[in-house]
Design a protein around this nucleic acid. Sequence first.
DNA 1: ACAAAAGTGTTTTTAATACACCCATGA
DNA 2: TCATGGGTGTATTAAAAACACTTTTGT
Lengths: 235, 235
Amino acid sequence: MTDATNKKRILVAIDCIIFGFDGEHLKILLIKRGFAPEQDKWSLMGGFINPDEGMDEAANKILLQLTGLDGVYLEQLHAFGRPDRDPMERVVSVAYFALIDIHKYETQLSDQYHAEWFLINEMPKLIFDHDEMVEIAKQKIRYKAALHPLLFELLPRKFTIPQLQSLYEGVYNTKIDNRNFIRKLTSTGLLIKLEEKDKSNSKKGAFYFKLDKKKYKAKFQAFLNFIPNPENLIS
Amino acid sequence: MTDATNKKRILVAIDCIIFGFDGEHLKILLIKRGFAPEQDKWSLMGGFINPDEGMDEAANKILLQLTGLDGVYLEQLHAFGRPDRDPMERVVSVAYFALIDIHKYETQLSDQYHAEWFLINEMPKLIFDHDEMVEIAKQKIRYKAALHPLLFELLPRKFTIPQLQSLYEGVYNTKIDNRNFIRKLTSTGLLIKLEEKDKSNSKKGAFYFKLDKKKYKAKFQAFLNFIPNPENLIS
DNA sequence: ACAAAAGTGTTTTTAATACACCCATGA
DNA sequence: TCATGGGTGTATTAAAAACACTTTTGT
């Protein structure tokens, strides 16, 4: 190890991959870049860290500044540092991913900020290495959600089982047997059934459920195994 | 997002948490720091990234420079960036962890470099936030090794089942039933039995095995579930 | 009365667990 | 011959998977 005296200082950025669910589809939030290089190209939300900020702190701040989002699920993904990843200057970027319920923030996002939701399978090409970041974030979510109740972060406070199932089916691009799915869900004890029904998708209506927050926190690290043989799916 | 013109550039470091197994115990490699601040305190292997290096590249280079290790398992862990983590100057550090077979590198490590192996449970306090890095690395290994055949990276080319079992028992600090353990192992198809026996630990001798490299690569991402209910163990 | 989505049980198959004795050998 | 660690098999239990019909209700 050598000391730092004659070492080169470089820019450290944060980029946020923001996933959202609207009750039907998994989407990603992108913005049109407002400055060179690559002006007017689509990009992840990003910014630079300031001298007085820790990493998570900086990530939360950037998320808040660019989208108005606060208090959402945010997790560090990976540090990206190819020397030529930004053509202007050497920048190391620490990527974070966020999970949100789209409806909860719909208005503030579209009105105040120049961000746009894209279907996860229909997104435009992104600048720099942002496509790679998104790919790795998708892998991470698939991996983690196969074992932990991560995807609840994408849902509103009350939601129906069919919604939840279609979320899982979307994330893993697979069909799930609904009897087995419900059995696994109920065996976790994470859900509380409400009186109310959602009749927007059927005549019969589907019962709303909410998360048992305490159990959710307690069991987040538990291995719940929602997805059969997830390794077969991770493409 | 704003552009980079008036942003502060900062130092980016790499720190490597190097785990090794000597056939009996899990150990960690540390060095005594040769310069201020915290001179003569124990530390992880670290260095700064150069303008022309990617992250993995820089990590490999630092590992090679400080230990002579090359071609070992090395994986990015997490970026650490508390503003005050290094008292001299703001430094963001990207931590990596490495897994090696201690015997394979024994001589070069002790002779050429000023590094020392410590039992994982008897290490000294480290500088800065290095203790936190080690803790997170241990968690990661426990998590990953519960699902993937990661711990083979710590073993020599030929090894015995009792060795492997004591490695797992050490990492998870638990006792494993050897009949069930062997059943899981053989069901993976990852092992090839050799003719030779290791008689250093018993009169009867234990058969050596080697990894089926092709199957290992193919199945590394598979969920193998070596450890029953790992979440109960991850303390 | 019918279309469309919600909800419900049972059987089969597979994997996990618990458990105890014989084997081979060098000292 | 005996002490030491290596190796082996079976029965039980639990979880995963496969599978199809009935219910509700708005139109």
